[in-house]
Every structure is written in C-alpha cells, then in structure tokens.
Design a protein around this nucleic acid. Structure first.
Length: 835
DNA sequence: GCAAGGTC
C-alpha cells in the first residue's frame, strides 16, 4: 500500500480527486478522513501534529532557575494524538510513503515530523513531492518525479522552534517570577509579540510627549455664475513651497482681513490634468484584513470568517503572502461563473466585454498558495450569515477589481487672487469609473470645481478663519499594525492577527485602535533596558539569516542554537544583576494600573483586587488594618480609566467583556446610589409568595447591577436581571400570565422611543432563548454556516455542545473535527468559569 | 502555566 501524507485535510481530498480521477472513497476514523483508491491511502494532517517542550523536570517555574532553560534539551511530543495514531496505524500497512506537505519551510518541517512518526513503525522508503499549487498538471508532475525530504530545510525550522521556546520561556519566567506574577497573570515576552508591543508602546510615547502647536487656516467660497466652490488661502514660503498653515495669529488675521475686504477674486492660473488610478492587486492575507477592517471587522473576526468561507469551499485558502494569480487561473472562466448570478452578474458581464482581461499583479509572488480569490463555487445569499456574505462579497469584488480597467480622473486646479492674497481650489472628477464600478470599497469621492478660465472674475464670500492645533500621531489600528509587522518582517501571514489578539488577552493592550496598558509600558521599558534583544525586530532578521544558512548547508542546527544559548546567557548576566530593580519597577506599575484613588476611610490607596473565589472587588491597600471594600460588577475584567470622579477622586472603572464591554464609572458613586434607592415592590414572588409571602421588587445593587428579586433574599434567591442603564418605569399594564406589571426603560442618552421591556419573567425567558441561539455562533471560528450544521446534528445550545461526544460529532458534521469540538467545549467551560 | 508556527 502507498501512503500519502498532506498538511491538511483539504489538500488530501483534492489530491485524492486528482490522482484517483474521481474514483476515491473516504472513511472517517477518530475524526480523521482517510481517502482511498486502488492501493493508495491519503491522510491530511492538521499542521504540526507534534510540539516542542522542555523535559518534565523543567516544568515547575519555582524550582528551576529561568537561565537553566538556556541549557535544557527540547523534546517533541504528539499534540494531535488522534491524527498521530491514525498516521502510525496506516504506516504499519504501507510499502512506501510519500510526504506531500506544503512547499515551504514550515511544510518541510511538518513533513519531517510525519517522516519520524512513520519511521517509528516501519522502514519502508519515504519520498517527498513538491508542487506549488494543487492543480492536475502540477500534482501529476510532482508524483511522477518524487524527491527526498530536505532535512536541512526542516532543521532550519527546528532551529526556530528551539530558539523561540528557549528565549520566550526563559524570559517570560524570569519577568513573571521577578514581579511575583504567577498563575493566570504571568508576564509574557517573545520574539514576535514583544517587538509588536514595542511598536504600540513607542507610538504611545510619541503621543504622550507630543506638544501641540497652534496654527490657522483660512477658507473662502468662490463662485462663477452661481456655481460655488470652496477655496483655501495659501502663501509661498521662503523656499518656494506652498503653505496653507499660518503659524502666527497676527499674520493669519492680516490675511483674513485682506480677504474679507474683497468681494471678488481674479483667476491667475488654471491647470487641467488627467490621472489614472490603477485597480488594486490581488488579496494576500494582510491586504484582505485591511480591507475587511475598513468594513468594521477586527483582524481576528475577518480571518475567522475567511476560514469558514474557505472550509465551505467558496473562497481559496485565506493564509497567503502571494499577490500574483497563478498561471492556471483563467480569469475569464472565473468571471463567467459569476455572469449569471443575481448579485454579481451585471458586473462580471461588463468585465467580460473588455477586449482582453489582464489581472493586476502585486509585488510578492510565492509558490505555496494563490492570492485569496473566489473559487467559482457560489453560495446563495441565504446560505450565509450577514457578515459572511459581506466578507464573501468583498473577496468576489476584489477579484472583479483586479480584472477591471484603471479609473480615469480629471483634475482641475484653480488659483485666484484677491487683495494680493492667493486662494486655491483642487477639483477632481471621475471620468471613467474603471474598477470603481465593481469595487465600491475604495474612495472615489469627487470635488466639484467649475470650468473657469484665466482672467475670469469670481465672486468671493464667506471668508472664515479657523484656529487649529497640530495633532499627535495617530494610534495604529489592527490592520495598520499587521501591515507594519509585515514590513518589519515579523510574524507570518497566519499568525500576525493572532499575535495582536494575544496582546489583548494578556492585558497588554485595550480598546480599538489598541492602546497599551501601564503594564505594557513597563514590560517594554524593562525589556529595552535589560534584554533589548527580545523587543528588537533585528532578532527575527538574524534568525532568518541563520535559518537560510542552515537550509543552505552552511551552518548546522547545533551551531546556530549554541550561539543563541550563549547570547541568552549573556542577557541573563545583566538581568540577574538588576533583578531587584526590575521587580520593583514591574510591581509598581502593576499596582498603578489597579489604583483608583484615596480610600475614604483611611486615605491609603484603593485597589482593584480579586477574591479567593475569583471575583473582582475594590479593596484598600491598608488591609488588614483597613477593611474598606466596594463591590464591582460580576461580568468582565475591570480596568481603571483616566477619567476621575470629581466627587470622590476615584478613577472610573470599565469592565472589559468583548462585545459587551461597559463603563461602570465610580464604584463609590454606584454604591451610594444603591444605598439611596428604595426597593420598588411590583408583585408576588413566584417561588415563595404562596408559602412565605415573598414579594418581587426592583432592586438596585451596590455593584451597579439591577434586578427584580425576592424581598426575602437571602432566604429566597429568586431573581430576574434588568438592564444596567436607563430609568425603569413601572406601567399600569399587567402580564396576564405572570400577574406582573409591564416595564418601560427610558435611556436619557438616546432620544429613541423607550424600550418596552414588558413583564420581567417573559423578558428573561425570551432573553435566554436568544442567548442559546447566538451563543454557539460566538465561539471562536463558528459562523452562521457551522452553527446551522451543528443544529442539524442536534446541537442547539452550549449545554448540548458541552455534553456532546467529540468523536460522534466529528463523524456527523462535515468540516468539524473532534479536536475542534474539544476546543469549543474548553472555551465554553472557560467562559462559564469566568462568569 | 512559558514562544511561535502550522491547522481548524
């Protein structure tokens, strides 16, 4: 039997389709697909199926000096046990094996991992085939001319694994131990995340150090025969440059006065130009994330939707650096598949009318995957959720745009003078829409300036002077960060968005665009001072050079890792010398992040603390001498914002909880408010009203939350949640079923109609139903489509999911593996634990 | 429990 191993299931299936000429079967064992035809079996891995780690004796952080990790060995252990087991079992029956993983460095390493697993079972020959895209011709060619595995290239990848683990683990442990941050809140650093964090911190430093300058600009309205347009004052600088900003007020006032004194302006010059604006290059991952970002999707969300569209077969592989369509892609043929669809038919047809179709090309051409484009399998609108459709449409329209003509713009620049002062206007008109006709995402806004001629007299009115100040540099958004990472050469197409997410999860950044926390500022500063390699992007550049040398056979794996070990040991000399200083510095800034202000009882600092049960509260730094506390909401992770309560001098608290993040405000104000609010009885408690006379009342809690609860609390803990914001009004209408009044919620902050919350019992029941339906879709990587497939298999709520057997589900639901299901189950457990 | 890189 011949055994073929690919990097992923999708590749295994397509290779089976090609080599078997359609006549293949598939059997699913342990959640792994095995494709079979004739005497051949083909299995897809799931990327790396083994991982690197230190031997177990290094696993206790407290019993190992972090520097010892620089000399520790590194062992490989299976991480995807079901796939490893399936591979090994196939290997036992094989007469020969062929490694057909992706044609890149990581693919060679994944191939070597498979090679070693097979070798543990048998000594049959193991060959390697390489193809740059899974097309009939390339795959047949590759299998007709098998090669050997490139062990040098795989060793280059292994060097990266070892160096990343050693530096990351040793420095992460050192900083965490030194700052006393063990457990969930450890302080992590690494070759990719730390330079990325430094990028964010450096920008924040520029913003903090920014000193704004005042300047003035002057606008006026010009008109020719009632056609009005806006013009801006400018003057020539000493070096002949054109300036719009006036840097002192007296000069600005003088210019303003001159212009106000005029009622007309004379046209000095008119310049007309034609400009073309080329269609965009095909999508690589970074540019896709950027375009999705401008539609409002986070990098993580965009990739998660793309993954889903890929798994369903609507778009190609979403992780790619390539911006050049491969030769075997026939754009005309692909356009034709869209020609008779309702959504894209007209646009595709208009492109097919062009004389010839020559798609655009970007700068980067790689061999592993094509740029992201639609496959030609087209879903109906009802097959996808709203977001999925929007992203699919983006990918389709990008493809259409790359096949379209450039746009043509007519530019018209007019300069006029009045009282010796110059005014200018720049007009812009789209003459040929070109690709803009099929790609509405890039700006095609026009600016109207009428046709005027030199010497024309124009009416001048509405002269206005505006005082402004220079702005600090702007924070980079997620997609801008990913672009910058790409330019710096750190991370990969598949990991850059995950790195950003990791920084959020680790408490290093918050908000969008991300801004660094105090902890992040401190960690970057400490690393820069004492271990600057880890925040320096040059570390990656050097690693890349070393990996190239290993791949070329010029250096050995051991030479490179030994050099790296020594380098790390030198870093530790410095770290050890300044251990106390580093610890104090990190602890101080960690405390500052959690400090709200003075304790009203003793004047010491009030801090956000965590109880033994894991819930957050506000407590005094003077504990146990001072036992003052204030409660916090139970949902989310608290952070202290810059805003300070005028009455109590305490920082406002914001609760971070993903999409349901909310501002809690001053916790002392909230507690006072609750103390001053009387319970409003609205009816009888359905639990204990009949027996014990319990009543239901609207209550405001000191933690800021509101609920309808039993007056016999804590003897009876019946309760229904109420919204945090808005005034709650008890109406005279009553619910027939529960004999409770209907409630209205009025929110001062919006002028909308009040929200008819209705009977609180009915409302809560409806809320729970909605939650169950949407909760599955909130899991990482689950979209409308997958949720639908899971529902078809009987999984409609989180509790259905938790109690499901992963192997059974993997067998029932196409595109969902047992491992993936286990990930979701873990996610559900984590969220429940956090709640 | 540490990293970063595949994959889902």
């Amino acid at each position: 039997m011949e055994l073929i191993v690919t990097e992923k299931d999708n590749a295994a299936r397509r290779i089976a389709e090609i080599l078997s000429e359609g006549g293949h079967g598939v059997e699913r064992t342990n959640g792994v697909n095995i494709y079979r035809w004739g005497d051949t079996r083909c299995i897809g891995l799931s990327g790396h199926v083994v991982g690197v780690d230190f031997p177990p004796e290094y696993s206790d952080w407290r019993n190992v000096q972090p520097v010892e990790l620089s000399e520790a060995s590194v062992v490989k252990t299976p991480t995807k046990e079901n796939i490893v087991a399936a591979l090994k079992s196939l290997a036992r029956d094989a007469d020969e094996a062929v490694i057909a993983t992706d044609y890149d460095r990581e693919g060679e390493l994944i191939g070597k991992e498979a090679y070693e697993l097979i070798e543990e079972e048998t000594d049959v020959p193991i060959k390697r085939v390489r193809f740059s895209s899974i097309t009939e011709r390339e795959v047949r060619d590759a299998f007709a001319n098998p090669d050997d595995l490139d062990f040098d290239l795989a060793a280059a990848g292994e060097a990266r694994q070892i160096i990343d683990l050693m530096w990351g683990a040793a420095l992460t442990r050192f900083l965490s131990l030194t700052a006393g941050q063990l457990g969930n809140d450890f302080i992590s650093v690494g070759r990719v995340q730390s330079p990325t964090l430094k990028l964010i911190v450096d920008r924040e430093r520029e913003i903090q150090a920014f000193d704004p300058d005042d300047y003035w600009v002057i606008y006026g309205d010009l008109a020719k025969d009632d056609e009005a347009f806006e013009a801006q004052y400018f003057y020539e600088g000493e070096d002949g440059t054109e300036n719009e900003r006036v840097w002192n007020e007296a000069d600005a006032d003088a210019a303003d006065e001159d212009l106000r004194g005029a009622t007309s302006a004379s046209v000095e010059s008119v310049r007309r130009r034609t400009r073309t604006d080329d269609p965009p290059a095909p999508f690589n991952t970074t540019q896709f994330i950027r375009a999705a970002g401008s539609l409002g999707y986070s990098a993580q969300r965009a990739m998660s939707i793309a993954e889903e569209l890929y798994t369903a077969g609507w778009i190609t592989y979403p992780r790619t650096d390539n911006t050049v369509y491969p030769e075997d892609l026939d754009p005309e043929e692909l356009l034709e598949t869209f020609a008779d669809t309702g959504a894209f038919g007209e646009d595709a047809a208009s492109l097919l009318e062009q004389d010839d179709i020559e798609p655009t090309e970007g700068d980067e051409e790689t061999t592993d995957h094509p740029p992201i484009h639609p496959t030609g399998e087209i879903p109906g609108r009802q097959d996808l959720g709203e977001d999925e459709w929007e992203v699919f449409e983006l990918v389709v329209r990008r493809f259409l745009a790359t096949c379209a003509e450039p746009a043509t713009w007519a530019h018209l620049r007019v300069v006029a003078t009045a009282n010796g002062r110059s005014l200018k206007a720049n007009g812009k008109r789209l003459v040929e829409a070109g690709y803009h006709a099929v790609y509405p995402y890039s700006s095609a806004s026009e600016n109207f300036v009428p046709e005027v001629e030199e010497g024309d007299d124009l009416d001048l009115s509405g002269v206005r002077l505006e005082a402004k100040e220079t702005q600090p540099p702007r924070r980079r958004g997620q997609s801008r960060l990913i672009e910058t990472m790409e330019q710096m050469g750190i991370g990969t197409k598949a990991t850059r968005h995950e790195t950003i997410q990791k920084l959020y999860d680790r408490g290093y950044i918050e908000n969008d665009p991300p801004r660094p926390t105090g902890l992040a500022m401190a960690v970057v500063e400490a690393a820069e001072q004492f271990a600057d390699h880890v925040t320096d992007e040059a570390m990656t550049a050097r690693l890349e050079a070393d990996m190239d040398a290993i791949a070329a056979g010029e250096k050995s794996l051991d030479e490179v890792t030994d050099e790296s070990r020594e380098m790390l040991q030198r870093v530790f000399e410095d770290l050890h010398e300044h251990r106390e200083e580093i610890g104090d510095f990190l602890r101080t800034s960690l405390k500052a992040d959690k400090t709200l202000g003075p304790c009203p009882e003793c004047g010491d600092d009030l801090l956000v603390r965590r109880s033994r049960r894991g819930s957050y509260f506000v407590g005094c730094d003077g504990y146990p001498d001072c036992e003052y506390t204030l409660p916090l909401p139970s949902q989310g992770e608290p952070t202290v914002t810059d805003e300070v309560c005028a009455e109590h001098g305490l920082g406002h608290v914001k609760m971070l909880a993903g999409r349901s993040t909310f501002t809690h405000g001053c916790p002392l104000c909230k507690a006072d408010e609750a103390d001053q609010t009387e319970d409003r009885v609205i009816g009888t408690c359905p639990e204990c009203g009949a027996e014990d006379g319990g009543e239901l009342a609207i209550k405001q809690l000191r933690s800021g939350s509101r609920l309808v609860g039993c007056t016999r609390y804590p003897d009876c803990d019946y309760s229904l949640p109420l919204p945090r914001r808005g005034d709650i009004e008890v109406t005279d209408d009553r619910c027939g079923e529960h004999d409770l009044p209907e409630l209205l919620v009025r929110d001062d902050e919006d002028d909308d109609e009040p929200w008819e919350l209705g009977c609180p019992i009915c409302n809560y029941a409806e809320y729970q139903e909605r939650q169950a339906a949407s909760a599955i879709e909130d899991l990482d990587g689950v979209g409308a489509k997958t949720a639908e497939k899971l529902a078809a298999a009987g999984i409609e709520s989180l509790s259905d999911l938790s109690s499901a057997d992963p192997e059974t589900v993997a067998g029932d639901v196409q595109g969902v593996s047992a491992d993936r299901l286990r990930d979701w189950q873990a996610e559900v457990t984590d969220t429940e634990a956090a709640d």
